[in-house]
Simulated assay, not measured.
Amino acid sequence: MKLLAGGAAIAAVAMLAAAGQARAQVDVSGGGLASACAAAAKNGESAYRFEQVCTESLEREMLIPLDRAGTYVNRGIIKMRTQQYDAAIKDFDTAIRYKSDLAEAYVNRGAARIGARRFGEAVADFDNALTLNVKEPEKAYYNRALAHEWLDDYKAAYLDYQKALEIAPDWELVRVQLARFTVSHAQAQTAPAAAAPKP
């Protein structure tokens, strides 16, 4: 199977912008500022005041390690929406230090690394997220497909888009990405039969 990405150069900027559409917000227990931060991340907020809610939570609230890690992830998501990729990566790094098995931290760090054009590192993050059984694996596959495409590995990108669509068949963004590909099947060649051994 040979894969050619159609209009890759034209779609490059759009793909990078689309990378942020596959984020994995983390729910936290209880109420308070950490919950408000989680709600802001979930609802697509990007204003600085929502980032500040997360910061206040981290500075003032007594949080269990999972909720502290989740709050760093949620603040990082808000930062990504304003293209603060390096600052977001720092938040995801801190979340991973608190909870090294938090798959959503890896998905989001990978998305931020795509924004920062660190595509090889992004692929490794999505691999980790999938190994850790991320709650929404379609987001990891989608983002990993974007990173593979930036690395000119069109076959891996196509297969990851296909996997994302298999998991989330109604996700229109994945269909749009797949529509850019042209797939051609090479002529299959069969190996000649082995000669019969001489008696």
Rank of each mutant, 00 (worst) to 15 (best):
M1G: 13
L3P: 05
L4P: 03
G6W: 03
A8E: 13
A8I: 14
I10K: 14
I10F: 13
I10E: 15
M15H: 12
Q21P: 03
Q21C: 12
Q25P: 15
G30Q: 04
G31C: 08
L33Q: 14
L33R: 13
L33A: 13
L33D: 12
A34C: 09
S35W: 09
C37T: 08
A41E: 06
K42S: 13
K42D: 14
N43W: 05
G44A: 10
G44L: 09
E45W: 01
F50Q: 08
E51V: 13
E51A: 11
C54T: 10
S57M: 01
S57F: 07
R60M: 10
E61C: 06
E61N: 06
L63C: 08
I64A: 14
P65M: 02
P65Q: 07
L66S: 12
D67P: 07
R68T: 10
R68N: 07
G70D: 05
T71D: 05
Y72S: 00
V73G: 01
N74T: 03
N74L: 00
R75H: 01
G76E: 03
G76R: 01
K79D: 02
K79G: 00
K79F: 00
K79R: 15
M80F: 00
T82Q: 05
Q83Y: 13
Q83E: 14
Q84M: 02
Q84V: 00
Y85P: 05
Y85T: 04
D86M: 09
D86H: 08
A88W: 02
I89D: 01
K90C: 04
R97T: 08
R97I: 08
R97W: 06
K99A: 12
D101N: 10
L102Q: 01
L102W: 05
L102H: 02
A103Y: 06
E104L: 04
A111K: 03
I114D: 09
G115W: 06
E121V: 01
A122Q: 07
D125R: 05
F126Q: 13
D127E: 10
A129P: 07
A129Y: 06
T131L: 11
T131C: 02
T131S: 14
L132N: 03
E136A: 14
P137S: 02
P137W: 11
P137K: 01
E138V: 07
Y142T: 09
A147W: 00
W150R: 15
L151C: 06
L151G: 07
D152R: 14
Y154T: 06
K155C: 06
A156R: 12
A156T: 05
A157D: 03
A157Q: 00
Y158V: 01
D160E: 09
Y161I: 05
Q162P: 07
K163S: 14
A164P: 06
A164C: 08
L165A: 08
I167F: 03
I167V: 12
W171V: 10
W171E: 15
W171H: 15
L173S: 15
L173R: 15
V176C: 01
Q177W: 10
Q177D: 15
L178E: 09
L178A: 06
R180D: 09
H185G: 10
A186I: 08
A188M: 08
A194H: 11
A195I: 05
A196R: 12
K198L: 12
K198P: 12
